[in-house]
Amino acid sequence: MHDFKINSVGFDDPAVQLLVAENLRDLSERYGGTGDDTPIAASDFAPPNGDFLVAVDGDELIASAGWRRHGDDAELKRMFTTKAARGRGVARRMLTAIEESAAAAGCKRVILETGDRQPEAIALYESAGYVRIEDFGYYKGHPDVLSYAKPL
Protein backbone atom coordinates (compact mmCIF):
# COMPACT_ATOMS: atom_id res chain seq x y z
CA MET A 1 0.00 0.00 0.00
CA HIS A 2 1.27 3.44 -0.89
CA ASP A 3 1.27 6.02 1.81
CA PHE A 4 -0.86 9.04 1.05
CA LYS A 5 -0.87 12.67 2.08
CA ILE A 6 -3.80 14.81 3.17
CA ASN A 7 -3.79 18.36 1.81
CA SER A 8 -6.06 21.36 2.23
CA VAL A 9 -7.23 22.54 -1.21
CA GLY A 10 -9.67 24.87 -2.88
CA PHE A 11 -13.07 23.26 -3.47
CA ASP A 12 -13.20 24.86 -6.92
CA ASP A 13 -9.90 23.29 -8.06
CA PRO A 14 -10.64 21.37 -11.30
CA ALA A 15 -9.09 18.11 -10.02
CA VAL A 16 -11.19 18.39 -6.85
CA GLN A 17 -14.33 18.94 -8.92
CA LEU A 18 -13.61 15.72 -10.87
CA LEU A 19 -13.46 13.83 -7.56
CA VAL A 20 -16.67 15.54 -6.36
CA ALA A 21 -18.37 14.49 -9.62
CA GLU A 22 -17.31 10.88 -8.95
CA ASN A 23 -18.78 11.21 -5.44
CA LEU A 24 -22.09 12.47 -6.84
CA ARG A 25 -22.20 9.61 -9.38
CA ASP A 26 -21.73 7.15 -6.50
CA LEU A 27 -24.59 8.77 -4.55
CA SER A 28 -26.78 8.81 -7.67
CA GLU A 29 -26.21 5.06 -8.15
CA ARG A 30 -27.32 4.48 -4.55
CA TYR A 31 -30.25 6.91 -4.36
CA GLY A 32 -31.15 8.00 -7.89
CA GLY A 33 -31.45 11.59 -9.05
CA THR A 34 -28.37 13.79 -8.99
CA GLY A 35 -27.01 12.25 -5.79
CA ASP A 36 -27.05 15.30 -3.54
CA ASP A 37 -28.84 18.58 -4.21
CA THR A 38 -27.55 20.38 -1.11
CA PRO A 39 -26.52 23.93 -2.08
CA ILE A 40 -22.73 24.20 -1.78
CA ALA A 41 -20.38 27.03 -2.76
CA ALA A 42 -16.59 26.95 -2.85
CA SER A 43 -16.61 29.81 -0.32
CA ASP A 44 -18.34 27.49 2.21
CA PHE A 45 -15.00 25.73 2.67
CA ALA A 46 -12.82 28.84 2.96
CA PRO A 47 -10.91 29.14 6.27
CA PRO A 48 -11.64 30.05 8.99
CA ASN A 49 -15.25 29.01 8.35
CA GLY A 50 -14.45 25.77 6.59
CA ASP A 51 -11.80 23.60 5.00
CA PHE A 52 -11.66 21.11 2.14
CA LEU A 53 -9.22 18.22 2.30
CA VAL A 54 -8.10 15.62 -0.20
CA ALA A 55 -6.05 12.46 0.17
CA VAL A 56 -3.33 12.24 -2.48
CA ASP A 57 -1.55 9.00 -3.42
CA GLY A 58 1.25 9.91 -5.79
CA ASP A 59 -0.48 12.31 -8.15
CA GLU A 60 -3.93 10.77 -7.76
CA LEU A 61 -6.73 12.17 -5.59
CA ILE A 62 -8.22 9.20 -3.74
CA ALA A 63 -10.52 10.82 -1.16
CA SER A 64 -12.16 14.06 -0.16
CA ALA A 65 -13.91 15.60 2.81
CA GLY A 66 -14.84 19.13 3.72
CA TRP A 67 -16.45 21.01 6.55
CA ARG A 68 -18.35 24.27 6.66
CA ARG A 69 -19.42 26.27 9.70
CA HIS A 70 -22.97 25.68 10.89
CA GLY A 71 -23.24 27.89 14.00
CA ASP A 72 -20.77 26.46 16.54
CA ASP A 73 -20.67 23.20 14.59
CA ALA A 74 -18.67 22.00 11.61
CA GLU A 75 -20.90 20.32 9.03
CA LEU A 76 -19.11 17.49 7.22
CA LYS A 77 -19.71 17.48 3.46
CA ARG A 78 -18.45 15.55 0.43
CA MET A 79 -16.80 12.74 2.41
CA PHE A 80 -15.80 10.27 -0.28
CA THR A 81 -13.19 7.62 -1.01
CA THR A 82 -12.67 6.28 -4.54
CA LYS A 83 -13.60 2.63 -5.06
CA ALA A 84 -9.97 1.72 -5.77
CA ALA A 85 -8.81 3.21 -2.43
CA ARG A 86 -11.47 1.71 -0.15
CA GLY A 87 -10.51 -0.67 2.63
CA ARG A 88 -7.15 1.04 3.31
CA GLY A 89 -8.16 3.23 6.26
CA VAL A 90 -8.24 6.36 4.09
CA ALA A 91 -11.74 7.46 5.20
CA ARG A 92 -10.87 7.11 8.89
CA ARG A 93 -7.76 9.27 8.45
CA MET A 94 -9.77 11.83 6.48
CA LEU A 95 -12.41 11.97 9.22
CA THR A 96 -9.72 12.52 11.86
CA ALA A 97 -8.16 15.30 9.75
CA ILE A 98 -11.57 17.00 9.41
CA GLU A 99 -12.13 16.81 13.17
CA GLU A 100 -8.68 18.31 13.83
CA SER A 101 -9.26 21.13 11.32
CA ALA A 102 -12.70 21.96 12.74
CA ALA A 103 -11.44 21.87 16.33
CA ALA A 104 -8.55 24.18 15.44
CA ALA A 105 -11.13 26.64 14.02
CA GLY A 106 -13.05 26.61 17.30
CA CYS A 107 -15.96 24.37 16.36
CA LYS A 108 -17.61 22.48 19.22
CA ARG A 109 -18.70 19.38 17.28
CA VAL A 110 -18.91 17.83 13.84
CA ILE A 111 -22.39 17.20 12.44
CA LEU A 112 -23.26 15.30 9.28
CA GLU A 113 -26.00 13.83 7.18
CA THR A 114 -25.63 10.44 5.54
CA GLY A 115 -28.08 8.05 3.98
CA ASP A 116 -29.44 4.65 4.85
CA ARG A 117 -27.93 3.16 1.66
CA GLN A 118 -24.37 3.88 2.81
CA PRO A 119 -23.72 1.15 5.38
CA GLU A 120 -19.93 1.58 5.19
CA ALA A 121 -20.25 5.28 6.05
CA ILE A 122 -22.64 4.57 8.92
CA ALA A 123 -20.25 1.95 10.31
CA LEU A 124 -17.30 4.38 10.08
CA TYR A 125 -19.12 7.22 11.82
CA GLU A 126 -20.51 5.05 14.61
CA SER A 127 -17.13 3.38 15.23
CA ALA A 128 -15.54 6.86 15.39
CA GLY A 129 -17.91 7.98 18.16
CA TYR A 130 -20.68 9.71 16.23
CA VAL A 131 -24.21 9.43 17.62
CA ARG A 132 -27.59 10.01 15.99
CA ILE A 133 -29.08 13.49 16.37
CA GLU A 134 -32.24 15.20 15.16
CA ASP A 135 -32.13 15.79 11.42
CA PHE A 136 -31.05 19.22 10.21
CA GLY A 137 -30.16 20.95 6.98
CA TYR A 138 -31.23 20.41 3.40
CA TYR A 139 -32.49 16.83 3.82
CA LYS A 140 -34.22 17.35 7.19
CA GLY A 141 -37.31 15.15 7.30
CA HIS A 142 -36.25 13.04 4.32
CA PRO A 143 -36.99 9.36 5.05
CA ASP A 144 -33.56 8.06 3.94
CA VAL A 145 -31.44 10.58 5.92
CA LEU A 146 -29.52 9.80 9.09
CA SER A 147 -27.93 12.68 11.00
CA TYR A 148 -24.99 12.29 13.36
CA ALA A 149 -22.80 14.41 15.64
CA LYS A 150 -19.60 14.06 17.62
CA PRO A 151 -18.29 16.54 20.20
CA LEU A 152 -14.77 17.82 19.57
Score class of each variant (00 low, 15 high):
Val56His: 00
Glu113Lys: 01
Gly129Phe: 08
Glu126Cys: 06
Val16Pro: 01
Tyr148Ser: 07
Ala104Asp: 09
Ala74Leu: 01
Ser127Trp: 00
His142Arg: 03
Asp59Leu: 11
Pro143His: 10
Ala21Glu: 15
Glu113Thr: 12
Val16Ile: 07
Leu24Gln: 11
Gly141Thr: 13
Glu134Trp: 00
Arg88Ala: 07
Asp144Met: 12
Lys77Ser: 09
Glu134Met: 02
Ala41Met: 08
Pro48Gly: 03
Ile111Ala: 02
Ile98Cys: 07
Arg86Gln: 15
Gly33Arg: 12
Ala123Thr: 14
Ile62Gly: 07
Thr81Arg: 04
Asn23Lys: 05
Asp26His: 15
Gly33Pro: 07
Val54His: 06
Asp37Met: 12
Gly58Met: 09
Tyr125Phe: 14
Ala63Lys: 02
Phe52Cys: 01
Asn49Pro: 00
Met94Thr: 10
Asp57Lys: 02
Ser28Ala: 15
Ala21Ser: 14
Ala103Ile: 02
Ala97Gly: 02
Val131Gly: 09
Glu120Val: 08
Asp72Asn: 12
His142Met: 07
Arg68Leu: 13
Gln17Val: 01
His142Trp: 11
Gly129Val: 05
Phe45Ala: 11
Tyr138Ser: 06
Leu124Ser: 08
Pro143Phe: 09
Ser43Gly: 05
Glu99Pro: 00
Phe45Ile: 09
Ala74Ile: 05
Met94Ala: 08
Thr82Phe: 01
Asp51Pro: 00
Gln118Leu: 15
Arg25His: 13
Tyr138Ile: 03
Pro119Tyr: 12
Val20Gly: 02
Val56Cys: 04
Thr114Leu: 04
Ala74Tyr: 01
Phe80Gly: 03
Thr34Tyr: 00
His70Ala: 13
Gly141Glu: 11
Asp57Gly: 11
Arg109Met: 00
Arg93Ser: 12
Leu53Arg: 02
Asp36Cys: 15
Asp116Phe: 01
Tyr138Asp: 09
Asp73Met: 03
Gln17Met: 11
Asp73Gly: 06
Ala97Glu: 13
Gly35Ala: 08
Leu146Phe: 05
Ser43Glu: 15
Gly58Ile: 13
Arg69Cys: 11
Glu120Gly: 07
Tyr138Leu: 01
Glu60Trp: 04
Lys140Met: 11
Ala105Cys: 03
Gly141Trp: 10
Val145Arg: 00
Val131Pro: 00
Glu75Met: 04
Arg30Gly: 08
Arg30Pro: 05
Leu112Trp: 08
Lys140His: 13
Ile62Tyr: 07
Ile111Glu: 05
Gly66Asp: 11
Arg117Cys: 04
Ser64Cys: 14
Trp67Leu: 06
Lys77Trp: 04
Asp36Val: 04
Asp73Tyr: 09
Asp72Tyr: 01
Ile111Asn: 02
Ser101Asp: 02
Ala74Val: 06
Ala65His: 08
Gly71Arg: 06
Arg93Pro: 09
Asp37Ile: 04
His142Asn: 14
Glu134His: 00
Ala42Tyr: 07
Ala102Trp: 03
Tyr125Gly: 01
Asp73Asn: 09
Ser147Asn: 05
Arg68Asp: 07
Ser101Phe: 04
Ala103Leu: 07
Ala104Ile: 02
Asp73Ser: 12
